[in-house]
């Protein structure tokens, strides 16, 4: 599938499961308790729910890209973290195609991507580039 400039990246929607944060703590070898214990989050004044790991949020954006460009390859990402994502929230990753170029036998698509949380808008945003066979 190819998408023209201005096309929307179909949204990837997921409910953030606190149990998944425990497995990500193992993947990342990072036992930061703000991802594991809501009491710690409260004690630090950061809210009342566990906070999702930042790279897990980026993974949702990657999922939106790989679903939008089957057989494509993610070549680059430049994501800014604007706010936290909390356990139990349903977040939506999406974006817009901003440029398309053909270089040799590759179609290079640049997108502005985001992850949105309910009531708070974008919590992550930034450009991404995906390549696909051009022909």
């Amino acid at each position: 599938m190819t998408l023209p400039v201005g096309a929307a990246i179909p949204p990837f929607v997921i409910e953030v499961n606190p149990a998944a944060m425990q497995t990500w703590a193992v993947f990342l070898k990072d036992p930061n308790p703000i991802h594991l214990d809501a009491d710690i989050v409260r004690a630090k004044g950061l809210g009342d729910r566990v906070i999702n790991q930042g790279p897990a949020n980026v993974a949702y954006i990657i999922n939106a890209l790989t679903a939008a460009f089957p057989g494509g390859t993610v070549k680059s990402l430049a994501m800014r973290f604007l706010d936290n994502v909390y356990g139990g929230e349903t977040v939506e990753a999406g974006g817009t195609v901003t440029a398309v170029a053909i270089e040799g036998d590759l179609r290079i698509t640049t997108c502005d991507m985001w992850l949105k949380a309910p009531d708070r808008g974008a919590v992550i945003s930034g450009p991404a580039v995906v390549t696909q066979p051009a022909f």
């Binding site: 950061l46 930042g54 980026v58 390859t73 070549k75 680059s76 990402l77 430049a78 973290f81 930034g126």
Partner: peptide
């Protein structure tokens, strides 16, 4: 004291 991620960029 709570480090926070500001951004992450990658080129594959």
């Amino acid at each position: 004291d709570g480090p926070m991620m500001g951004s992450s960029q990658v080129e594959f």
